[in-house]
């Protein structure tokens, strides 16, 4: 019973989730954009008037380094996560089903343990009196009293750590469906292992690669807890500024303006990826 135009039963069954997401996801997202044009109320709320001030304030050159840092850190995180996840999923998809299941579980478990705890774990690992610093100092890899914490490197490391499963899972789903006999064919036709990996496997899992990249990039763009916990004062990302506007300055319209800008930065790569995926499908169909 597949109906083309929605029946009343279909409407009735779809309504609960549709209404919930409409009310608590779509409307709030629109409200953010609307609030960006509202004036500030000094009691921490939203003023009555309409204004362009918040938008104009974005032209302040002080935002440039923050926007740049957010984009650069997210791009670096995405790139490194994919570079780590690609060979990993390549091997995961080739081992036996039992081992594969165990590996998958091992990847997912750290991801399910509390986000804050994972950051805290890195914080104590990188602590000046922590085990990693002691180890590196005793191996003479870093000078005595080196600070592994509170710098941009620590932020990048922890971002990669927390986002890696977002790269592995979609890539694994694609690699699982990949026909590995294609690699044998490529080898028979004279391609080396590296060449067949790059020219046959990577294009073969392209869809997974695109969703992994979007997932990691988008999630990285919105980070603020990681820079706050393991980064230094100069490692703030746009998310840090949003949280600051909301909780320290109690300036909701200004925070909404930043959030609207972030939303734009999130939606653009998503639509590009969606269009790309669709283009790929059409190409394959023709």
């Amino acid at each position: 019973m597949i109906s083309r135009s929605p029946s009343s039963t279909q409407w009735l069954l779809t309504l609960p989730s549709l209404a919930w997401l409409g009310l608590f996801f779509v409307i709030p997202a629109i409200l953010i954009v609307v609030t960006a044009f509202r004036s500030v109320d000094f009691h921490g709320g939203v003023g009555a008037g309409w204004t362009m001030e918040n938008i104009v304030a974005l032209r302040d050159p002080a935002w440039l380094p923050i926007a740049w840092r957010t984009l650069a850190l997210s791009a670096a995180t995405t790139f490194i996560c994919l570079a780590l996840a690609l060979p990993m999923t390549f091997h995961m998809a080739r081992v036996g089903p039992r081992l594969r299941q165990i590996l998958l579980l091992l990847v997912v478990i750290p991801f399910l343990s509390n986000f804050l705890i994972r950051i805290f774990a890195w914080k104590s690992l990188l602590h000046p009196e922590g085990p990693l610093t002691n180890l590196l100092v005793s191996l003479r890899l870093v000078p005595e009293g080196a600070l592994l914490l509170n710098n941009v490197g620590a932020v990048l490391l922890v971002m990669i750590y927390t986002q890696l499963p977002f790269a592995i899972l979609p890539l694994y789903a694609a690699a699982e469906k990949f026909d590995f006999s294609l690699l044998d064919a490529a080898r028979d036709l004279g391609a080396g292992p590296w060449r067949s990996f790059a020219k046959v496997f990577v294009p073969g899992v392209r869809r997974g690669l695109i969703s992994a990249a979007v997932m990691v990039f988008v999630c990285s763009l919105g980070q603020y807890v990681i820079p706050q916990m393991v980064g230094g004062a100069s490692d703030e990302m746009i998310g840090s500024k949003i949280a600051q506007r909301v909780f320290a300055d109690r300036n909701l319209p200004q925070a909404s303006t930043l959030a609207a800008a972030l939303m734009l930065a999130v939606l653009v790569p998503m639509f590009v990826a969606a269009a790309w995926q669709r283009f790929g499908r059409k190409e394959a169909a023709s």
């Binding site: 109906s3 083309r4 135009s5 929605p6 279909q10 409407w11 779809t14 989730s17 549709l18 997401l21 409409g22 608590f24 996801f25 779509v26 409307i27 709030p28 997202a29 409200l31 953010i32 609030t35 979007v214 997932m215 988008v218 999630c219 763009l221 919105g222 980070q223 603020y224 998310g239 949003i242 949280a243 909301v246 909701l252 925070a255 909404s256 959030a259 972030l262 939303m263 999130v266 998503m270």
Partner: peptide, 29 residues
Amino acid sequence: SGLQSAHSMLITLPLVMPDILMGMSLLAL
């Protein structure tokens, strides 16, 4: 149906929405 395509998009979007935006927008609401 067209309704389900829209429904599917609505279901998928929160999966890729950064937490801070979801928190911020709900707070605004």
